[in-house]
Every structure is written in C-alpha cells, then in structure tokens.
Computed example of a mutant assay.
Amino acid sequence: MNKKPLIAAAVILLAGAAALAWWLQRTPDARSELVLYGNIDIRQVSLAFNGSERIARLAVEEGDPVKAGQVLGQLDIRTLQLRAEQSRAQIAVAQQALARLQTGSRPEEVAQSRSQVAAAEADAKLAQQQLERVQSIGQSTGGRAVSQQDLDAAQARRKVAQAQLENARKAQQLVVTGPRKEDIAQAQAQLEASRAALALLDHQIAESTLKAPIDAVVRARLMEPGDMASPQRPVYTLAITDPKWVRAYVAEADLGRIRPGMAARLVTDSHPDQPLEGRIGYISSVAEFTPKTVQTEELRSSLVYEVRVLAEDAGDRLRLGMPATVRIALDADGDAARNGQRP
C-alpha cells in the first residue's frame, strides 16, 4: 500500500490547522473589540475683516501654520486715521466750550456789567430830572411855556431810561450768576459724543488688523492685496489642528458596548503600522440612516449613531477627510451596559 498520499494529506491537514490557529490568534474576538470605519474631521474657521476698506497686505499663504494672535493681514487705514484726527480736533473744541461754561464770568465781565448798570441809572436819573423840570415849568406858567408835546417826550424818555436800567440790571445778574446748568450739561454731552466717535474710529483702526484667533493651519487664501474687503467676504479659511477626531457610525446593536471616555486606537492607510491613541468623545443621541459615505462591513441601509473618536495627533499626520479605522477595546464581558454604564 502506497503511504505517500496519506502522509501528504496529513501534512496538509496539519498545515491547515496551524494556519487556522494562527489566524484565530491574530483576529480579535468580536466580543472583545469593536471596529469602526470613518473619516478624519476637524473644525474650520472663516476669517474676514470687520471693516470695508481695501486690503493693504496679507502675510501668510496656504499651508502656513499660524499662532493665536499672529497678524494675518492689514487694511488701508489712511482714511480712518484722518477721521480720527478730525475727531480729536472736535474734542478739543468741545473741551474749551465746556471749560468756558464751567469757569463762569470773568471779573472783567462782571465789572463791565456794573458799569453798564451805573450808566443806565444815570440816564434814568437824568430823564427823571428833565421830566420834573418840564412839569414844574408847566405848572408855574399854567401850561403856557410848555407844550403837551414836550411833556409827552419827557415822559417817554423817562420810561425808556427806566427800561434800559432794568435791562442792564438783569444782564448784570446773569453775568454774576453764570451759565445755566443745562448749558453745562449740553456741553458735557457734546464732549462725550466727540470722545465716543473717536473711540469708534480707534476701534475700527484696531479691527483693520486681521489676527489668528487660535493655533491653526491656513487652508485657503481667498483674497489678495488690493481687493475690497467686507465682513461678508472671508479672507482666509483656517483648519484648527487640535482637536481632531474620526467621525464614524455605530450600529444600534453595538451602541450599548461603548461609552464616552473609552480608549481607542486609530489606524490610517498612510501609516498602517503606526496607530494613534484616542478616546470616544461623543455619541449621538439621535439615530439616523447610514450615510452614503460611511464605510461599514455590511453594505446595507440601517439605523446608526454618530460617534466621534478624539485623536492624539502630536505628529500632525491626520488630514481632513482621511479614511481611518477605529479599534475599541471592550470590557471583559464585551458589553459596557452590563456593568451599569450607559452610552
């Protein structure tokens, strides 16, 4: 009997058993590890100038890393600077007007008002004396030496002099009392309005400098020097390098096996032998149908939940949209819900 076929069959069976054992040892148990497929996602910022002036310069290009507070661009501020100078001049005028009202009347003005009162008193006294003289002559002559017209003229001159005296006294009182408090308040309000206008211009000048709000990488440069900027037109799009996460989807049957904070390992096609550490940061509370772009082992439509796995990417290897595989080590019994933990 030929034993060679039996020996060959035995060798093949042993090799197959060894290969199966090696594969079972290499392939993780589905109860001890959950594998998800998704894509790298990051936050982005669209930066625009707050003003509507012409762009004077832009400092960075696509791909340049930027730090928080770094100057990225500058508007032409010559018009704003001229308006600020005009506002400063208006403030100086308002300050002088307010100081004049707060100081009140000068001693020379008070002395002048007193002199005017004295002159008016003298005129009134003279007019009174002339009237009395005309009346005395008329009484002594029986009205023959003085006409009624002369008498009326003397009486009118006395009334005019009395009115002028009263006017001079009122003017002296105003000079001594000084400006009204309402006039001082109005001048103060005008000064504050001028200062507010200057503060607004200074703010606009400060806002004409575009700065990075956070550490990031320039993803797109959308405008160039000479373009007219506006708050509605972004100049740069920045990609925030931290945090980065994998947007994946977990089936409803596996939802109870994971929870926020669980450790995970991320593998990309560009670095399959260099996995990154991560953790589950967010699990959606709303179910949705499987998106067309999601990568799952079962290509069928089903209800899934979005999961965000935060990645520790110190080497900045991950890029927006990059496919990634997430491996999550489960609890000993393979079910987080059994331990009283809820996703």
Rank of each mutant, 00 (worst) to 15 (best):
129 Q>W: 10
236 Y>M: 04
78 R>V: 12
230 S>P: 04
254 D>K: 08
179 P>Y: 05
246 V>I: 15
192 E>Y: 04
28 P>Y: 03
248 A>N: 03
213 P>Y: 04
176 V>F: 06
287 A>M: 11
20 L>H: 13
188 Q>D: 07
28 P>F: 03
230 S>D: 09
201 L>Y: 04
341 Q>E: 07
165 L>W: 01
270 S>E: 14
166 E>H: 03
197 A>P: 00
141 T>W: 05
211 K>P: 05
246 V>K: 03
336 A>H: 05
145 A>H: 02
264 A>S: 10
235 V>C: 11
13 L>A: 15
205 I>Y: 10
300 R>L: 11
124 A>E: 02
329 A>G: 12
189 A>T: 09
307 V>Y: 01
255 L>A: 08
181 K>S: 15
12 I>W: 03
319 R>S: 09
57 R>G: 11
287 A>D: 12
137 I>W: 09
223 M>N: 08
310 L>A: 09
33 E>V: 15
218 V>C: 01
269 D>H: 04
271 H>E: 12
28 P>I: 01
221 R>H: 07
54 R>V: 14
220 A>T: 12
88 R>E: 14
59 A>H: 00
263 A>R: 13
181 K>T: 14
289 F>P: 02
179 P>T: 00
104 G>W: 01
335 D>C: 02
224 E>S: 15
263 A>Q: 11
342 R>I: 12
171 A>M: 07
67 K>G: 13
340 G>N: 12
180 R>L: 11
212 A>N: 08
94 A>S: 14
155 Q>C: 03
218 V>R: 01
114 R>S: 15
302 S>F: 10
241 T>C: 01
280 I>H: 00
263 A>T: 09
38 G>K: 02
130 Q>I: 05
218 V>I: 13
290 T>F: 10
307 V>W: 06
251 A>D: 14
296 T>P: 06
175 V>K: 06
208 S>T: 01
80 L>N: 01
82 L>V: 15
226 G>K: 02
7 I>N: 05
121 E>N: 13
30 A>Q: 11
68 A>L: 08
155 Q>L: 10
270 S>W: 09
136 S>K: 14
36 L>C: 07
16 G>N: 07
108 E>H: 06
321 G>D: 03
73 G>P: 00
339 N>W: 03
258 I>T: 02
90 Q>N: 15
174 L>F: 12
341 Q>D: 03
31 R>Q: 13
230 S>K: 03
246 V>C: 07
17 A>R: 08
102 Q>P: 06
332 A>T: 09
316 D>E: 12
170 K>C: 04
178 G>E: 05
48 A>H: 06
150 D>V: 03
300 R>V: 13
165 L>E: 11
222 L>S: 09
315 G>K: 11
103 T>K: 10
220 A>Y: 09
147 S>W: 06
252 E>I: 09
173 Q>M: 05
160 V>S: 12
319 R>W: 05
127 A>F: 05
190 Q>S: 13
42 I>H: 06
287 A>G: 15
306 E>D: 03
46 S>V: 00
94 A>F: 06
321 G>N: 04
53 E>R: 12
35 V>T: 11
60 V>Q: 05
143 G>V: 07
222 L>I: 09
131 L>W: 01
160 V>L: 14
185 A>M: 09
199 A>G: 06
40 I>T: 11
156 A>Q: 15
236 Y>W: 02
243 P>S: 08
204 Q>K: 12
37 Y>S: 14
297 E>K: 13
290 T>P: 11
242 D>C: 00
211 K>N: 08
